[in-house]
C-alpha cells in the first residue's frame, strides 16, 4: 500500500478523473504510434531475408524456344495470350512445347469433369 496522491474529496475525484482521462489519451496514442511503426518490421524482415539468401548464380537465360507446335489451327493471337498468361504465372524460365484443344473424351468422367470446371466459370456476358 502506498500513500494516496489524491485526497478523498469531490475535488479529488474531479482531479483524478481529469488526470486519468487525459493520461489515457496520451498513453493510448503512444501505443498507436508504436503500431504505426509496425510495417517497418516487414521491411526489416525483407531486408534481412534478402541479405541472408545467397545470390543465385547467373545462368544464361534459356534460348527462347520456337513457337509451340500448332497443328490444330489455333489463331496466333490466342497463342500469344496463352503464352503471356503462362509467363505471368511461372516467370521467364519455361518452354511451351505444344498447344492443343483439350480433349475431354466421352462418358461419365468427361461429363463430371466438365460440370466441375463450369462450376468455377464466371457467368457469361449476355452480349456474347
Amino acid at each position: 500500500m502506498t500513500t494516496a496522491l489524491i485526497p478523498d474529496t469531490l475535488q479529488g475525484a474531479l482531479i483524478l478523473s481529469l488526470i486519468d482521462f487525459l493520461l489515457s489519451f496520451v498513453v493510448i496514442s503512444f501505443i498507436g504510434l508504436l503500431l504505426t511503426g509496425f510495417p517497418l518490421l516487414n521491411r526489416l524482415a525483407d531486408w534481412v531475408t534478402v541479405r541472408r539468401v545467397a545470390p543465385a548464380p547467373i545462368v544464361a537465360a534459356p534460348t527462347p524456344s520456337a513457337l509451340p507446335v500448332d497443328d490444330q489451327g489455333i489463331p496466333e493471337e490466342d497463342i500469344a495470350v496463352i503464352m503471356a498468361a503462362i509467363s505471368a504465372m511461372v516467370g521467364g524460365e519455361h518452354r511451351v512445347l505444344h498447344i492443343e484443344p483439350a480433349q475431354h473424351g466421352v462418358g461419365w468422367l468427361a461429363a463430371g469433369r466438365q460440370a466441375q470446371h463450369q462450376s468455377h466459370q464466371p457467368p457469361r456476358s449476355p452480349m456474347r
Partner: peptide, 28 residues
C-alpha cells in the same frame, strides 16, 4: 493505429460514474 484513440475516448463513462458515486457519498 489511428483508431486506437477511440479506446481512450470511449471511457468517459468511467469518470462520470466515479464523480457521481463520490457525490452520492461513496469513498474515492
Amino acid at each position: 493505429p489511428k483508431l486506437v484513440i477511440l479506446g481512450a475516448g470511449a471511457h468517459l463513462g468511467i469518470f462520470v460514474a466515479l464523480i457521481l458515486a463520490k457525490l452520492l457519498g461513496f469513498s474515492l
